[in-house]
Design a protein around this nucleic acid. Sequence first.
DNA 1: GAGATATTGAACTATTTGGTTCTTTATCGG
DNA 2: CCGATAAAGAACCAAATAGTTCAATATCTC
Lengths: 184, 184
Amino acid sequence: MGRPKNFSREEVLEKAMPVFWKHGFADTSLQELERATGVNKSGLYTEFRDKEDLFVECLRHYVESQEKRGFLTREPLGWKNVEAFLKHGPLNKGEQQGCFSVNSMREFAILPDEAYGVVTENRALLQRLLAMNIEAEKPAMAALAIAEMVLSFFSGLCIESNLKSGKASSNRKIDNFMTALRSL
Amino acid sequence: MGRPKNFSREEVLEKAMPVFWKHGFADTSLQELERATGVNKSGLYTEFRDKEDLFVECLRHYVESQEKRGFLTREPLGWKNVEAFLKHGPLNKGEQQGCFSVNSMREFAILPDEAYGVVTENRALLQRLLAMNIEAEKPAMAALAIAEMVLSFFSGLCIESNLKSGKASSNRKIDNFMTALRSL
DNA sequence: GAGATATTGAACTATTTGGTTCTTTATCGG
DNA sequence: CCGATAAAGAACCAAATAGTTCAATATCTC
């Protein structure tokens, strides 16, 4: 059977993700990835095809982990869920600021096509979930149209978390946005 | 007096800007900058301190050129201006997609501090101008609070222009957002 | 036109990049 | 405990990177 490896794919993804999250693809070197994961190049290259592959897998891992948080599926569906999504979706702990998926959009030009697919599928899913929650509130405006707006606003919040403006100001914006939504 | 140089600082900024705009800082090489500007390294380095300096100057140039477009100062002030700002602010011609300033936010980690300053000052100005236009419409909610929301939504639109979803869908979102705003 | 002066272009450098390969080492099944 | 097997570590590589230097060249003033 031979020697067992002393790292799991999951572990590596978990540790590599924050690096890509913070620095993006272009500005992340293999050295940094080795240091962050504790696995050296030879290990990384047996587990992943190349840097691009590792990046895409991190992105997938991120998307899945976000979906598991399930802000938009808690019963009862409604504005409360939308608010929770906006408030707790964009992370803000240490390296992980904003949303890895949104951050990646800026780099599509140099990212493999798969990355584009992962991001857009995730966005499509979010939009559906948002629409479901909005539908439950029976607003006058079309639920899907509102969902689109919410997603754009969310994306804005995410990149703005690169500013050092703090959680308070972001929460204030969300509160105002929610009162606007509730009046639709 | 010696030999006159055959390029102007303005020209260089104008040509280098789209490159940084599209590829960001980390993924733009000096080679690309030479090719795009038609000025070789030695020329670039006599005009600018280094790559970081050139980037910041491009950013400044961008911000100034955007301010000159003056969407938010046309009389009469009001929702119309806000709508125009959202619709025509994020560019979409060729290399230039979205907003260079918003794009740059993603790279603060590796950008010189000056870049942060340029971006935040620009945002502060935009917020003030937005607030003025909103104030003119006398909404129930505080004008500054609305202005903040608009800026976040704008930022979202900007990064979303990296998606191939087209101008139509973005305009639809803006229309919906504007009807929400007008009801505040 | 001569000489001073400043730009230009290209050669050069040191470092870092992503990626490969090969030896060493640990662990398993028998 | 032995031999097969697979991972780990490190040396290695070619290409690209930002940045420098210097000789060639073009233009100005006098």
